[in-house]
Amino acid sequence: MNVPKTRTSRRTPCEQCPLRSLPTFREFEPSELAFVSDFKQGELLVEPGGMVLAEGSHSAHLFTVLAGWGFRYKMLGDGRRQILNYIMPGDLVGLQGSLMGEMQHSVEALSALTLCVFDRDRLGQVYRNHPELAFDVTWIASQEERILDEHLLSIGRRTALERAAYLLSFLCQRASYSNLFRDERVSIPITQQHIADTLGLSIVHTNKTLKKLAERNLIRWADRGCDILDEDGLRRLSGWEGLEPMRRPFI
């Protein structure tokens, strides 16, 4: 589905960015904040199911997720989809296209998504004039690699039950750090098809696996997604140690 994107005149000043108040993210130096504020061109609103970037496309822009959920994925020629990772507030989107010339994966909105828009042609200024921000970009890319390592381990070596427990625990922790739950119920806006496409399982196998998690009172499936009832229990079942608490950068 390719739902139209909306370029909005609304612009959240970087000085008032809601992500800056979260303990998850490091603070900008005054000169860095001034540069990022000038670097930002505007904001993009994408409806659920809308395409942010398409595999093989060339984009003039980089994006930072300001609000909402999305995911990265690749498609096979016969239409089968592999979801690679999920994007949340603070994540950088489109860096691969900036450095490689074209996107090697697609990015889609999972919920209503708000993105800060940056001119990718100015990325060189980050490396020339702001070495701390350049390090941050490198850190973000390295962290993405680290996450993909864990995902690959999960798909290759964990059982179906452990894979599902790991994925839901991972998404829950990341969303908590990004304040996506906003003190409301801990619910992930995901379908069973998304989970199947992430774990490399059939939809039937996925359904049976999620029922087992529900029977253990770890999750509850709802109309709007998956409610997490016991995140610690999911993590123990998966054998995953969890995310390391740290102050991470964002652009």
Rank of each mutant, 00 (worst) to 15 (best):
C116V: 09
F118E: 02
A165L: 00
L92R: 04
L180P: 04
E150K: 15
D78L: 08
D183F: 05
V107Q: 02
Q82D: 07
Q173L: 10
L123W: 04
E102W: 08
L180Y: 10
A164V: 01
I190L: 14
R128L: 11
A109N: 07
E184C: 06
P89L: 01
C116R: 09
S98Q: 11
L167C: 04
D78M: 08
E144P: 02
R185G: 03
C172H: 12
S111A: 11
G94Y: 04
R80L: 07
A141V: 12
T114K: 10
R80S: 13
S111D: 09
N85C: 11
G90N: 04
I195T: 08
E108V: 12
I147A: 14
Q82H: 09
I147D: 06
T191L: 04
Y86P: 04
R128S: 12
A164C: 07
R120V: 09
H130R: 08
A109Q: 05
E162C: 02
D91L: 01
L171P: 03
R128V: 07
G101W: 02
Q192I: 12
L99V: 15
L148K: 13
M103K: 08
I195P: 02
L168A: 04
F118A: 07
E184L: 10
D78N: 15
N179V: 06
L115I: 10
A141N: 14
R182S: 10
R81E: 11
W139V: 15
F181P: 01
R163N: 04
H151M: 13
Q143N: 13
V107F: 03
G124N: 11
Q125K: 09
L180D: 08
F118C: 08
R81S: 06
L161G: 00
R163S: 03
N179P: 05
I87P: 03
L161N: 01
L84E: 05
A109R: 06
Q125S: 07
W139L: 15
Q125A: 06
H105E: 12
L133S: 04
S178V: 12
H194C: 10
R120C: 07
I87H: 06
S98F: 06
I190V: 15
I147M: 10
L133M: 12
V107W: 02
D78Y: 10
N129P: 00
R157N: 03
R120K: 14
C116M: 10
G124Y: 12
I195N: 02
A109P: 05
I140D: 08
Q125N: 09
R174S: 15
Q193N: 12
R128T: 09
M88H: 11
Y86W: 12
D197Y: 11
G94C: 05
F181G: 05
Q96G: 14
Y177M: 14
